[in-house]
Design a protein around this nucleic acid. Structure first.
Lengths: 150, 150
DNA sequence: TATTGTTATACTCTATAACTATA
DNA sequence: TATAGTTATAGAGTATAACAATA
């Protein structure tokens, strides 16, 4: 009667994997109306962070090859939502800045992403959504160095 | 003093995304010693499930184009861990079967994956690991049709 | 006429190596 | 001599279209 379902398919790991890829798709769809990809949205997010990042810093945080970041930023700079500024202290580096237009675009995108997340987590009551976030923070803090404690 | 961290970077959605991709990498690494990819491991898992699947069924469960599944199964069949059997009821279809060797390989791989998962979730106490799995099941059940209730 | 599996081809994405300018 | 950013090129991975066999 009851379906025999391999334990793998109900494991936290497998579900984490599927949740990640499905949410990635959902985000990309939610951002198409703003003509952004999830990846570009993350660039805006990091570019708007407190301390200015170089392209190499950014490539590490995105987990992307530096050569890929070049094109990514080219596109966003052409749209004037991000700016490359030479670091006076080390003139090999560019520091990435969010322009005013970039800030507005990021705000809209963040709202769209938040909506998508709300819908994705809709099956969970509010307390469980908070709990899920806390658990993910506990798991990932050590794996995302810039989230570190200190 | 305290770092200003964009709320996006501590959202459940972003962390889910990062957890998914990082765990994917970890799984692939854990399976290299068995000469398997995470994707091949999932094929073995589904091929070993109770009701026999066609290649098209499998492509839907993996979320992959059917043309990709062809090559995937070619490789596993050449290794004699999976078999294509014509469905007598509809001779266009192949039903996928796990061979005895395939079952042994899957068992080893599942153990390796379980180890990797344990390590990945090590920051969480046991109760939280159970809780995380339950939350993911609640979120994903509706999105993975074959997990359906009934 | 539609569907399953297959092949061939084109396209996208990514990684590798080599270059420049700065340090 | 090493590093940040860039370019060009080659490779891997993927999707698209067309086909054979079966329904």
């Amino acid at each position: 009667m009851t379906e025999r379902l391999d334990p793998v398919l109900t494991s936290a790991g497998y579900l984490l994997l599927k949740a990640g890829t499905q949410f990635h798709t959902i985000i990309d769809e939610a951002l198409t109306e703003l003509d952004l990809t999830g990846r570009q949205f993350l660039v805006l997010t990091f570019a708007g962070s407190a301390d200015p990042l170089s392209q190499l810093d950014l490539s590490r945080r995105l987990g992307l090859d530096p050569t890929i970041v070049v094109g990514l930023i080219d596109g966003l700079e052409a749209r004037k939502v991000v700016r490359r500024v030479r670091d006076p202290a080390d003139r090999r580096r560019y520091l990435l800045e969010l322009t005013a237009a970039g800030g507005r675009l990021h705000a809209k995108a963040a709202a769209a992403v938040a909506d998508a997340e709300r819908e994705f987590l809709a099956p969970l009551p509010a307390a469980d959504r908070k709990q899920l976030r806390r658990l993910l923070i506990d798991v990932m803090t050590r794996r995302l160095p810039w989230m570190g404690p200190s």
